[in-house]
Each structure stands twice: as structure tokens, then as C-alpha cells.
Design a protein around this nucleic acid. Structure first.
Lengths: 143, 143
DNA sequence: CCATTATTTTGACTTACTCAAGAAAATGAG
DNA sequence: CTCATTTTCTTGAGTAAGTCAAAATAATGG
């Protein structure tokens, strides 16, 4: 479990100024993977007391640009964030309750990056979203 | 190129009532693959004269539920629609200009559906979005 | 400690879409 | 064809999630 100074170091390494909102957001995203902006805002406000809504948006954008967090947004969902970056993993999303879980790359590395016909596009990433039912909803539906 | 009566038949087969907004929307989506709701609204209004914004939303939802059109929505984009359904194809999206192109399934059928560890989820679909630069933006960036 | 530059606050504003009630149109039965 | 029923469309208000911009505040290098 990373400490506050770990986050501080990460920010400096990304050439971002170290501020309490940033540390709090980074920590909140780390502790609540796949949380949406509102939840993160809630967690941050608990640890810091007062932060503006806007600051959380700005910080999330800055951290995303710096590559410290990754933004995901399955269809029908609001933006969600996670700190697991740079390993090209994917997600399963429950159609019923919106639960999200991580899935490691199925086909080894750079999955599916070999598109059959790329229409001249220069492809640099393949994003995979698996859709289905989580264990709970899956059970509930059978009964 | 399907005619109006082709669309009529498709609607009947899907047990949907045949109305002019529906035929117009179906035709617009067919002729402008990956168009967003606003563009579709524009095209429909040209062919019909007057349609409400809301009707287009409702029709698109009805057609999507009936499986006659497919809704796609890459990150940072508004909802887009296409009539190519049921063949599990994927999309490349240009990071720069938002252009979208179809990509046939890379790994044969049901691509990547074999997730390494599904966390107990019952997976029924794998959606792949390739990110990169379209030919135009790719060229522009090099110069 | 100061100056500079980046960040945060505040608050208005937008976009894309949903909700709800009544009017109008499509379909099946007679 | 005409009517009754049910669905769809129109109208208009409302919402969620986020953006924009200006001023206030804080972080960093010197």
C-alpha cells in the first residue's frame, strides 16, 4: 500500500506539482479501482475536508494526461478511473449492475493488435471490453 | 441499396410499426455509417421535413433494441449508429479527427472471447476498439 | 523571501440526453 | 372502410456530467 510520499514521488516524476488534492485523488483512485468521478470526489472530500468539484475534474485530467491513472468509460457509464496503467489489461463489465473487473490480456501481449485490414490507420492500441453478467447477477437471473 | 419497402419489411419482421420517421432513420443510418444522433437528425429532417428531436432518439432506441441498428460509442464521442449488425466486427477510431472505420474480426470468430481469467463473469460479447491515426491525420502529423 | 508559473475556487454555462403528458398515427377486428 | 386499441410522435421541461473562464491561491526555482 503506497504512502503519501510514494504518491508525491510519482507526481514529481511526472513533472506535476505536488498538491494535496492531487495526492488525495491519486490515493482515492488507487484504493477504489474503477470508481467514477463522483465517488472519487466523495472520498477526497472526506480526507481533505474541502475540495471543489472542478479541482477533482482537473486533477483527474492532469493525472490521466501524465499517465498516472487511466480513464475507462464503458458504454452507458460515466468516466471511471484506475491506477493500474501501462500493462494493457482489459475489463469485463456486468450488463446488469455495471460491476467492472480486470482481465489480463487474453492473447498474450498486444492482443488483437493485428487487425485484418487496418484501412491505412496507424493503430497504437487495442482496447477490449468484455460484456456479460457478474457472478451475483448471473446467479440472480437463473433463480 | 435498400429501398423504402426493404426498410418497411425489416421493421415488420422486427415487429415494429412502420412509420415514416423509422424508415427515414433506418435509411439515414444505412447511408451514413457511424453518424451521430445530430447528423442523423439532420438527414432525416431533410427527407421528411419535420421530425422532433425526441422522435429520432426514440426511434434509434427502438431500432437498437430490435437489433436493426447497432449503437457504438468510443470514449470521448457521442453515440453513433450503424446498420451493419450481427457480424461481430470492430472499429478503428482516429485519435485526432474521430474518424471511424470498420475492422473485421482479427482472430477469426468470437475474437478474444477467451479471456484468461473471467472472475466468474458470464461473458457474452467482446467489444474491441482500435485506437490510432487515420491515413490523413497520420500524414499530416509527419509533415 | 520573491517572482513566476501552475493550480484551485467559484460560478455560469453546454451538451447530450431523459421524462412525461397529450396529440396523432398505425394496426387488427368487425 | 371504420372504429377501438395500442404504439409512436410532439412538445416542452428537466437532468447529469462535464466544460469554460476569471480571479484567488499555492508550489517551485532562484
Amino acid at each position: 500500500m503506497p504512502t503519501s510520499s510514494d504518491y508525491e514521488r510519482m507526481l514529481r516524476e511526472a513533472e506535476l506539482r505536488v498538491t494535496s488534492p492531487r495526492i488525495a485523488v491519486l490515493s482515492a483512485v488507487h484504493d477504489h479501482p474503477h470508481a467514477d468521478t463522483e465517488s472519487i470526489f466523495g472520498v477526497v472530500r472526506e480526507s481533505l475536508g474541502a475540495v471543489s468539484h472542478q479541482a477533482v475534474y482537473d486533477v483527474l485530467k492532469a493525472l490521466t494526461n501524465a499517465g498516472l491513472v487511466r480513464r475507462i468509460q464503458p458504454q452507458g457509464s460515466v468516466a471511471r478511473y484506475e491506477t493500474r496503467v501501462g500493462d494493457n489489461h482489459h475489463h469485463v463489465v456486468c450488463r446488469s449492475c455495471e460491476a467492472i473487473a480486470d482481465i489480463d490480456c487474453a492473447v498474450g501481449h498486444a492482443p488483437c493488435l493485428t487487425a485484418s485490414d487496418d484501412h491505412g490507420f496507424t493503430i497504437d492500441e487495442a482496447e477490449v471490453v468484455y460484456w456479460g453478467l457478474c457472478p451475483d447477477c448471473s446467479t440472480a437471473q437463473r433463480n
